[in-house]
Nucleic acid binder design. Structure first.
Lengths: 207, 207, 207, 207
DNA sequence: TATGAATGAGCATTCATTCAT
DNA sequence: GATGAATGAATGCTCATTCAT
């Protein structure tokens, strides 16, 4: 495969990717047939197989592109920010925004995790995401800004909060991405304790 | 349906539920056929349709039982605990432990969210989970132990951290559930900031 | 596969084998679709895949059964015949008769030789046939009845004449099998030379 | 069709014929797609349909050319040979050699026989081959060199031995064509009987 | 209760052929 | 002459479900 495509071919391919992602996201990967996709675009079945080796390969490409794109956006968001904590906040913001603007892909990434064939792709992508975020957490620890705890665990927790709040607040409840990002960042930085309670706890730990 | 079953029938049914859940979790719901299930148990196809109206109905029952069971465990864990923050910690611990002991079901719940037909079930279950946890967060706020923020957001954030750390640390990295639970609880209570940084922030906010 | 079949199942399977062999032989293996077969029998498509793993597997089974049957017939024909030359004649006769009664299978064996996937099966069967006939040729040589030449070549030549005359005389021209068998045997034993010519040749060789 | 081709066109066409024959012979006619052929040559699909009306027509042309070529070679081999028996031997030799040098085509001829659409072509070619050889056999009979038997049967038997030994000895076992030709000729002339046995048989028949 | 057999719509994929450029 | 793109009927196969026993 990996055909050399003309401009027209590029456009067709993109149409297919986009329409398929929509269908996969709304009906599920399995319940969406290749026929659904080509019929939806009003083209013959051969078109699909001209551009993709199989339904599965198309799905993998959608996943890979999604992960690539999210990563690109995150990197861009935190560039030129000297404070590591601010970098983390910026990353959270970029992620929530991306998930908001690419709801379809969010669902697909979650589905992919549930099937043996695709799970490795997702895990690799997630490891990449952790590897991307880890240095900033470590820098925060070194700068005395972040608690001296396993940075990997902290990073994962941040990713967990961000993903979950994005889904629930933005996708399900329809709140603005910025609000969810703010809430996620605040939670990640300070947790749930009240200032008084936190102070008491800090004092206790100082003993 | 809802047949009256003999003791032997009960056992058969349970075998089917368990084996199907295993297969669904490892291969995916769609890639697992009814034939896979009955062949795996060495029984005829009629057996399946004696106990379940359809593959879909079986799956719904698995999901419902899973949600019921998780809820039961959480309730039990936090009973008799007067401190609301401690109740939250106990709930996190119980959840992580349950997810550890029921990995299959965890995956199934995540898959179910990705398909129109099953998503409502999951959303209902999650709303229930939030509704269960919410009072404790509110109690914490009222007692001045927890920050005066939208309790629904805080609750969701807690669920997000808990689920994600359980998956990553326990299921994927194989760490003990207790450790993941401790990490999740700590993160939820205090966030990532170092004591010094937190103090500074608190001081700033006090202005 | 290799399902345990009830009597009814056995009958169904046989119907499929027979009808498919007919179709394969008259239209060709590839031009015969599974749909042709099941439609021809007025059954659903699932029936086919209940009894056979694939179209290819069915074809292999037809080939294997054909070779097994031909071999059985040949063995039976030459049993209890003390003279090796007579045994060869009997074998030729049995082969021609079988090919006459199983024209379909004859064509299928020939087709199978032309496709990489099936050729090994045919070659194995043919080696078996040679191995079966060889001892008789050797015995003929040892008894001074047959020329002292490479017995393998002689055996192959006999098989070649037999197969070809069976096809041309019996299948294509419709002559009786017995006649073709007689012609084949005569040719194999004496060749084409006239008595006078043969005598001269023998004399010359004796020098 | 029958396009007037430039020199370059002639070469292109020949490339297609040759490559297709190779693929048909090794993978089979049906399993070889037009795409396989044009991709294998690195040209577009239009090229194929510029030179051939269809895949089937291409195959027919390959078959026709093969038969024409074999016939040409045989005729050439037996020219200027006054002895009819020697002519037959020469024909056998030429055939085996041709089959050796054109293995691909041998397989294709055999396949063609197994499919309704192509079988008539093959049968016509074979009848031609018989018609070509028949006069020599008849001449042998008239000259008292060959047994007074149905010359058609004798001719067919010769063709059968030749084809089979060429396939088995030369194509499958890799022996030299000349050796197979010698064996085939010897078998055709004298059969399998030993001189002594033949003499006895001749004596008996003289009664 | 349970089984083997059967159904048939549906699926992913192939492929000979055509077409616009 | 040649290419990439498109067509769409047809193919081998799957599978949830039903049925006769």
């Amino acid at each position: 495969m990996t055909r050399r495509l003309t401009a027209r071919g590029q456009r067709r391919r993109q149409e297919l990717v986009e329409f398929a992602a929509d269908q996969f996201a709304s009906k599920g990967y399995h319940p969406t047939s290749v026929a659904d996709i080509v019929d939806g675009l009003g083209v013959g079945k051969g078109v699909f197989y001209w551009y993709f080796e199989s339904k599965e390969e198309l799905f993998r490409q959608i996943l890979a592109e999604a992960q690539r794109d999210l990563r690109r956006v995150q990197r861009h968001a935190i560039a030129d920010e000297p404070d590591p904590v601010r970098r983390i906040e910026a990353g959270i913001g970029a992620s929530v925004e991306w998930l908001d603007r690419n709801r379809r892909l969010f669902v697909l990434l979650e589905f992919a995790r549930t099937e043996e064939r695709f799970a490795p792709l997702i895990r690799m992508g997630e490891e990449q995401a952790v590897a991307d975020a880890l240095p900033h957490v470590k820098a925060g620890i070194d700068a005395g800004l972040i608690r001296r705890e396993d940075p990997l665990v902290l990073t994962q927790a941040i990713l967990g909060v961000t993903g979950h709040l994005a889904r629930v607040l933005v996708l399900e409840e329809g709140r603005p991405a910025a609000e969810a990002a703010r809430a996620a960042a605040a939670f990640c930085l300070e947790g749930v304790l009240s200032p008084a309670s936190a102070r008491r706890r800090l004092a206790r730990e100082a003993d």
